[in-house]
């Protein structure tokens, strides 16, 4: 894996400011809440909601194929469009969108490094104007199930030394001291973590300005915890969005071949009857 590969997945705020009006490129903002987009966003950016646009609310699933076709079509996106995704929280939900679009085979994908926070801190232009684009034709490919882990996969990998589970939640969630971060609803019955998982909270991937750490720093972070490129790696968190950022780092910035996001995450595992859970003694 080289810096070239990293450069393919990431674009800088300056690059976006220089290229944002190019017709083959579409900016997409995905935040923790839609209010951020409504307050102001990059000129020309469409806003997607992870809670309504990027999921199947009935089945608790990622966006169905036909719904993704419709979403992309109404966003004026074709199979050849380069999609640059950004959002708040150092791109948590931007990575969630990136992961789903990867599953469905969209190849020209980029994350704006640093996301909304860095753009605003640098004083780059924002607008309230919501753009409209002529409907485009989009045909989804996939899904590529190698990028997504389900419960049986995690059950199987948990016991294998050739695999690594990465818990991207806070240390307090990992140890079971809390069931959810402060101010967030508790979505599980028990605290702790999946046996054998290592704790690498999502924010260890990022710098203070919201951008990703260097390739060398990230490689050191994961390899020092035994999460090496030769393993089957599964990342998880509470609902799968923080771990999509971990997935992005491992897959797209470090080039790990076999890395999956377990979007069932602790909301699924922490509610299972008789599922094994590790937590330190109190």
């Amino acid at each position: 894996m080289t810096e070239e590969h990293r450069a393919e997945a990431l674009v800088s705020t300056q690059w976006v400011e220089n290229h944002r009006n190019e017709t083959h490129l579409r900016l997409v903002e995905v935040d923790m809440d839609r209010e951020a987009y409504d307050q102001a966003h990059l000129e020309g950016a469409v806003g997607w909601s992870w809670q309504t646009d990027l999921c199947d609310r009935i089945r608790r699933d990622i966006i169905p194929e036909e719904a993704l076709d419709r979403l992309l079509s109404r966003s004026g996106i074709t199979n050849d469009t380069t999609i640059v995704i950004y959002g708040d929280n150092n791109n948590w939900f931007a990575c969630w969108a990136y992961w789903q679009l990867s599953i469905y085979g969209h190849r020209k994908l980029r994350i704006m490094d640093g996301g909304r926070k860095k753009w605003i801190a640098e004083g780059r232009p924002l607008t309230k104007e919501v753009p409209t684009y002529p409907a485009a034709h989009y045909m989804t490919r996939g899904p590529d199930v190698r990028l997504r882990a389900f419960l049986p996969d995690v059950m199987r990998l948990m016991a294998q030394s050739s695999s690594s589970l990465v818990d991207a939640r806070t240390l307090d969630e990992f140890t079971g001291r809390v069931l959810a971060p402060a101010g967030a609803p508790e979505t599980c019955q028990r605290g702790g973590h999946i046996p054998g998982a290592v704790s690498i909270p999502w924010d260890q991937n990022c710098r203070q300005d919201g951008s990703f750490k260097s390739r060398e720093e990230l490689a050191r972070l994961y390899e020092s915890r035994g999460v090496t490129p030769d393993k089957d790696v599964v990342a998880y968190c509470r609902i799968g969005e923080r771990s999509s950022l971990t997935w992005f780092v491992l897959k797209e910035l470090l080039g790990y071949e076999r890395v999956r996001n377990y979007d069932g995450s602790w909301t699924e595992w922490g509610n299972l009857v008789r599922a094994p859970v590790e937590r330190p003694p109190r």
């Binding site: 929280n89 967030a184 924010d203 923080r242």
Partner: peptide
């Protein structure tokens, strides 16, 4: 936001 992990609570 709640600092750790940083989830936005209000705007």
């Amino acid at each position: 936001d709640n600092v750790d992990p940083g989830g936005v609570l209000v705007r």
